[in-house]
Design a protein around this nucleic acid. Structure first.
Lengths: 120, 120
DNA sequence: CTGCAAGCTGGAGTGCGCTCCAGCTCAAGC
DNA sequence: GCTTGAGCTGGAGCGCACTCCAGCTTGCAG
C-alpha cells in the first residue's frame, strides 16, 4: 500500500538505517511521514527520490550539493537551476570517467611489462 | 643531473610537499636520499615510482594496498604477486568505470526529463 | 500479558587521507 | 655576516560521510 518501514527502504535503496536518518537530518530528504507511535513510514515517492540521491552520491556528488539540489526541488520555479546543476555534475562525471580510462591505460602498460617479465 | 628538490618533485608529480613526506613516512616510497644538510634529493627513479603511485592513487587504490605493493617491490621474487595485485586493481577500476557509466545513463534520463519540462 | 525485535533521539566516535603548524636548520644572494 | 626562503621534524587538526551507541519507546507474536 505504498508504505515502507525504514528496514524495507534500507533494503531497497542500499542505504543503511543510520544513513537514511542522517540524510533526513541533513535535509537531503524532507521530513518523512510518521506513524502515531513516531516511527517513519516512507512512501514510494520517497523511494524514487532516494534512488536519485543514490545515483548522484554514487557518482560523487557531495552532500552539500545534494542539499542544495534538494532545497531547489521544493520550489517549482527552479527547474532551470536544477537542470544546470545536473548538467554540471554530468560534466564532472564524464571527466572522472575519462580520467579513470586514461589511468587504466597506464595501468595496462604496467601490466604488460609484468607479463613480459613473467612469461615472455 | 637526475636530482630534484622536494619543490620540483611536487611540481612534477602534483603531490604536495606534505603528501610527499607523508608517503615516505608511510613507506610508500623508500627513504629518499639526503644532502649533507639533511634535505631530500629525489632521483628520476623516484619520480617514475611516484608517477605509478599517482596512477594507482588516482584510480582509488588505498594507501594500505600501495604500502603492500611497495613492500613487495623491494623483493625481486614477488613479480607474480605484484602482477596479481595490479590485475585485481584493474578489475576494481573497470567495475568503477562501468558503474559510473551506468549511473551516468540514469543521470542523462533525468536531464532529458528536465529538458522536456523546460522547453519542449 | 510478556518478550523481543525494530525503531527513536542526540551526540560521540571512526577511518581515510591528507594538511597545517611551531620551532628549528640550512643555504644561496647581496 | 645577514637576510630570506626552502626544508626539516613530530605531532595535532581537519573535512567528509558516515557509523555507533546508550537509553528509551513501540508494537507484533505467541
Amino acid at each position: 500500500m505504498d508504505e515502507y518501514t525504514p528496514a524495507q527502504v534500507a533494503e531497497a535503496t542500499g542505504f543503511s538505517l543510520d544513513t537514511l536518518r542522517y540524510y533526513e537530518k541533513e535535509g537531503l530528504i524532507g521530513p518523512v511521514e510518521r506513524t502515531v507511535g513516531g516511527r517513519r513510514r516512507y512512501r514510494s515517492s520517497d523511494l524514487a527520490w532516494l534512488d536519485l540521491i543514490k545515483c548522484l552520491r554514487d557518482t560523487g556528488m557531495p552532500i552539500a550539493d545534494l542539499k542544495r539540489y534538494s532545497r531547489l526541488s521544493e520550489d517549482d520555479s527552479t527547474l532551470a537551476e536544477r537542470f544546470a546543476l545536473l548538467e554540471a555534475h554530468d560534466r564532472v562525471v564524464q571527466a572522472e570517467i575519462d580520467r579513470l580510462r586514461e589511468r587504466q591505460h597506464r595501468l595496462h602498460e604496467k601490466m604488460a611489462w609484468y607479463r613480459e617479465q613473467l612469461g615472455g
